[in-house]
Design a protein around this nucleic acid. Structure first.
Length: 287
DNA sequence: ATACCGACCTGTCAGC
DNA sequence: TGCTGACAGGTCGGTA
């Protein structure tokens, strides 16, 4: 489900509702784990921690945690007379929503839905819940600052973007989906960006002209920004941290519009399969 | 090194 | 009313 705009929307919603709250206890389901870290390590890292901030890196939600660990001073620091030892330890809880993952803030009396895999009880009385029917989502905890492999589309400048595709023989659509190049663009926004840039998804990445790359660069930033503004795209079941859908699907020009007329020229939109993913485009507008 | 393809899961919907 | 097959916002590992 969620690509950069949806993840950003969830992260902003969580930031608003849980920043500063303290995790009192954690329940993790026994299903074959949607976990990258062992359940016990996730639980022990979360329990007792304070949520310092919530952000996004690529398609990952990053929850910054601190905890007082006065009894357990940071190694390597000498205790000085009259000063307390360093006593805050930091870690991060990383959530990838996969296709159908949801991270929700709920009141405790709200019924637990099927496929709930984690519930964190907060000091405020609310609960942070992770729900994921297909279990493609992933949960982990890290001690160091989490980093994504690829470039953040909203931060990159044109020269960095352009260099990603040089001499690449793969279809431009596949290159946009490759998270080691760009991090955060998924199937919807790849198709929508390519349409706005008037570039066909099957074009070999390395063959795009400078002008085409410039249009694609502009389109990606524009589409992502507009989608964030609209709260993301709700195609089947995406909802934000408060359970509310997004509205950018109303602005899709090609994604999910197979057979319908192109909004620019009226030609029916085509759907093809590239590397196992569907790709939607206008055969007349996109070259 | 690079690029495709199936596998991983569950749910939904169209067609018979 | 089933049943079957196609498809779904993502990523990984194996293979060519």
């Amino acid at each position: 489900m969620p690509e950069l705009p949806e993840v950003e929307t969830v992260a902003r919603g969580l930031a608003k509702h849980v920043t500063g709250d303290v995790i009192e206890s954690v329940w993790i389901g026994s299903k074959p784990e949607p976990l990258k870290s062992p359940a016990a390590e996730i639980a022990s890292t979360l329990e007792g921690a304070r949520i310092a901030a919530v952000g996004r890196v690529g398609k990952h939600i990053v929850i910054d945690l601190d905890r007082n660990s006065g009894t357990n001073p940071v190694p390597g620091h000498k205790r000085q007379r009259g000063k307390k030892p360093p006593s805050i330890s930091r870690s991060q809880f990383i959530v990838h929503l996969g296709m159908t993952g949801r991270l929700l803030v709920a009141e405790p009396q709200t019924e637990l839905v099927k496929h709930t895999h984690l519930v964190a009880k907060l000091a405020s009385g609310r609960e942070l819940r992770f729900v994921d029917p297909r279990r493609f989502g992933r949960l982990s905890v890290v001690r160091e600052e989490f980093q994504a492999a690829g470039v953040e589309p909203l931060m990159m400048d044109f020269d960095v973007f352009k260099a990603l595709f040089r001499k690449r023989n793969t279809p431009i659509k596949s290159a946009l989906l490759n998270q080691k190049l760009l991090t955060g663009v998924g199937n919807i926004y790849a198709d929508e960006s390519l349409f706005r840039a008037k570039v066909r998804s099957r074009r070999r990445a390395g063959t795009l002209t400078r002008a085409e790359l410039q249009r694609l660069y502009d389109s990606i930033k524009e589409v992502l920004a507009q989608a964030i503004e609209a709260g993301g795209s709700s195609v089947s079941d995406y909802v934000d941290a408060a359970g509310e859908p997004g509205f950018f699907q109303l602005h899709h020009r090609v994604y999910g519009r197979e057979g319908q007329p192109c909004l620019v020229c009226g030609t029916p939109i085509k759907r093809i399969v590239i590397a196992g993913r569907s790709a939607h485009y206008c055969p007349k507008c996109q070259k």
